[in-house]
Design a protein around this nucleic acid. Structure first.
Lengths: 249, 249
DNA sequence: CAATAAAAAACGAACGATCGTTCTATTTTT
DNA sequence: AAAAATAGAACGATCGTTCGTTTTTTATTG
């Protein structure tokens, strides 16, 4: 699929759903040593059920607090059946993390377009991240909340993933700054607060749902807000004023 | 103490430490029915020890995952001793939440100054919140992460507290908009993303520590960033341009 | 197609470990 | 000596995990 300047949320959702199945299959094949189920069709169906039920329960009460008996009850599978799909509770956690990270990487890699100008790139990146977190909301929330319960290796991966996302924004901002279209005092901190705003979408989802703010509403607002901030003369820095009109194509 | 236009972080810290002891005493007197310790001096010293140790352990592995034996070991108090200070693990959680909320309310109430103009108010509010979360970082992180483990009543209180903070920003933005000094497309969403930026300070503290960004650095940046965003003409809305120079006293 | 043997999957009782909590004995302070 | 505070063993419940049994599906045969 070709990357495009703008993609509707519905198109994005469809793209994600296809990748979702793909990822389950990859996970299954990689963990076939520890998974006792032989037939792919059976395994994929039940793995998806286990993953989704776990995400739901863990987002309600936390992964550690959720017992495997809770999971058994909610998923309609017996304890013995569950242990045919993973070797331990921690292994289940790792599989879920693994699937989410793969899915994130896969979807994002399809959406970057090096040919765009910095302003368009910024808009695409913000929108793509919000769409992504919207589609995979349970996972992102889960992943954020359970980081501390992962082993050191997995924690490293989470941090690395976080910093990689931020680095992408830093590069866009840097490029725009060099081209003179952005007026950024500190690219690292700016990328940091942009990421904070994007994160709020899945961490405080209840708030936006209650206020009937759609993902497109929020995306539009954040894009405008950020562009206003980095197109304007810096407040309290009179020596940097002038030579700026703020207009874009 | 009189509210002032600007207060250094060190002054703020001192103010907070005094209130901290005060709050422990209040908590002790209110829960005297369930606390088996008679002498205030002993109770206050050990309550503080229990609270701080709990916050440390819970921020490492989560409150539910932390066993009371962990707490016993880390605090150097026996199981029996611990249960002289609280009636159950959940009661301990509530006491900690209670102390944090009180402390927050107390400190913030001392820092609002209705006489300031909107821009100064905004700056004071941002700085005060960052200082507050810096001083009480373990609690804010704890409180955020453990919300889902609270009972319904305590959850309501947390949400209410979150919305109250946001409302404060909404009112400042609204006032500035009415006076024509702020150019805000949506006060609610703007307040929301400001809060998200403030929250990032204590949720991603490791990142800022690693980069050697101080709380004053971050406060200064956020204030500049937000003011740039709401002083500038809105991007992509040419009909709202003009008659704006962005300068302030 | 029906019957049946083999393979795959699901089941749920049982195990040891650990949890929150209680309680009595002991130590420390008054 | 009395009161206050601490100690740590003990209890029942629940946890993650295992394992022999039963049920379901697939393959084979008459």
């Amino acid at each position: 699929m070709e990357p495009r300047d703008s993609m509707s949320f519905d198109e994005f959702k469809q793209l994600a759903m296809v990748s979702m199945e793909e990822m389950c299959r990859e996970i299954f094949k990689e963990n076939q040593a520890s998974i006792k189920i032989k037939k792919e069709a059976v395994a994929l169906k039940n793995l998806a059920r286990i993953f989704n039920t776990t995400l739901r329960l863990a987002n309600e009460k936390g992964f550690q607090t959720m017992s495997l008996r809770d999971l058994s009850r909610a998923s309609g599978m017996s304890m013995g059946a569950l242990y045919s799909y993973f070797s331990s509770k921690e292994a289940l956690l790792e599989m879920i993390q693994n699937r989410g990270r793969r899915l994130t990487r896969k979807i994002l890699s399809r959406l970057v377009d090096p040919a765009q100008d910095p302003a368009a790139k910024l808009e695409t990146a913000i929108r793509a991240h919000l769409y992504l977190t919207e589609v995979m909301l349970p996972w992102f929330y889960f992943s954020y909340m359970e980081t501390k319960n992962l082993d050191k290796i997995q924690q490293k991966k989470s941090i690395e993933s976080e910093l990689a996302t931020e680095r992408m924004f830093i590069e866009i901002l840097d490029e725009g700054k060099r081209q003179g279209v952005f007026r950024v005092a500190d690219c690292v901190l700016t990328a940091s607060v942009i990421k904070a705003m994007l994160q709020d979408w899945y961490l405080k989802r209840w708030k936006y749902t209650r206020r009937q703010v759609s993902v497109d509403d929020y995306a539009g607002f954040v894009i405008d807000f950020v562009e206003s901030a980095i197109h304007a003369p810096l407040a309290k820095r009179p020596e940097e004023k002038g030579g700026q009109d703020g207009s874009r194509g």
